[in-house]
């Protein structure tokens, strides 16, 4: 198994265990147990009173109500783990979700401006050595966006420079065949910085964000290839499932 797969396996398993522990500490375990039992009871009721459609209908209604209660009980722990999970997933997505531009591969670079453009501005994109800017900037006036196509010629790592009149902003760019962390988007000082923490915030320059559309990556594990989140989901849930008895957690 490739090293990146092993690392994802370990991280996913560890995340499952940690989240299980957090879940136990932040959820109303007694209420969850009670509600799950009600759910199971109404399922059994459907079997027990199979000859009585009225009871089945009542059981269905109670089942839905118990389900709603069950989801309600999940809200608190879900809300608590949302922030750390988002940060973890963002970091993981940067490493496992995207891959650098392979030599010969093209990608779109998009800059989002805060204000409307009048069509007369001059925007220029400069790329580091090994990466070529193939097209002039294409403007989407309504969306306040300008896009370019770049192409990697050889492995490279450096900065794209966006020259917009007197303003210059940069954005990291990576090309090559090896898996490494890539930052898809550089943003300004904005809450979305939490989701794109790979680069320092953009200075106040009228540019809201600038993004490189890296190709999506897939992770190979156990002979199958899938999006990293699929593996993360399966492995973290499997580890949590295996250990929930040990941790005495009802989910």
């Amino acid at each position: 198994m490739p090293l990146e797969s092993v690392s994802l396996l370990l991280i996913s398993a560890a995340a499952g265990v940690i989240l299980l522990w957090v879940f136990r500490k932040t959820s109303d375990q007694a209420a969850i147990r009670r509600t799950k039992k009600r759910l199971q009871a109404h399922l059994l009721e459907i079997r027990l009173y199979a000859d009585d459609p009225a009871i089945i209908w009542q059981a269905q209604k109670k089942l839905l109500a118990a389900n709603a209660r069950y989801f309600g009980l999940m809200l608190r722990p879900a809300a608590i783990v949302t922030v750390p999970m988002v940060l973890l997933l963002v970091a993981l997505d940067g490493y496992y979700g995207k891959r650098p531009l392979e030599p010969g591969r093209a990608a779109i670079v998009t800059a989002q401006f805060e204000a409307a453009m009048n069509g007369g501005e001059v925007f220029r994109l400069e790329a580091p050595e090994g990466i070529a800017v193939e097209t002039p900037g294409v403007r989407l006036l309504g969306a306040h966006q300008v896009s370019w196509r770049i192409r990697a010629a050889q492995p490279a790592a450096g900065e794209l420079r966006l020259l917009a009149g007197p303003v210059t902003v940069t954005k990291s760019v990576v090309a090559g065949n090896e898996r490494r962390f890539v930052s898809t988007r550089r943003v300004g000082l904005h809450p979305s910085l939490l989701l794109y923490p790979g680069e320092p915030p953009l200075p106040a320059s009228g540019v809201k964000w600038i993004e490189v559309d890296y190709p999506a990556a897939r992770v190979q594990m156990f002979g199958f290839e899938a999006h990293w989140l699929v593996w993360f989901l399966i492995i973290s849930m499997a580890s949590a499932f295996l250990l929930k008895g040990k941790f005495r957690v009802t989910v």
Partner: peptide, 30 residues
């Protein structure tokens, strides 16, 4: 992909989903 918020919610979703599916199948079958 940012949607996944941990195994607790995962089980909740899967468990409830299965419960509803099972209830539906049982009811329809019945």
């Amino acid at each position: 992909e940012l949607a996944y918020i941990g195994p607790g919610a995962g089980f909740a979703f899967l468990g409830s989903f299965l419960a509803l599916i099972w209830a539906f199948v049982l009811s329809v079958g019945t």
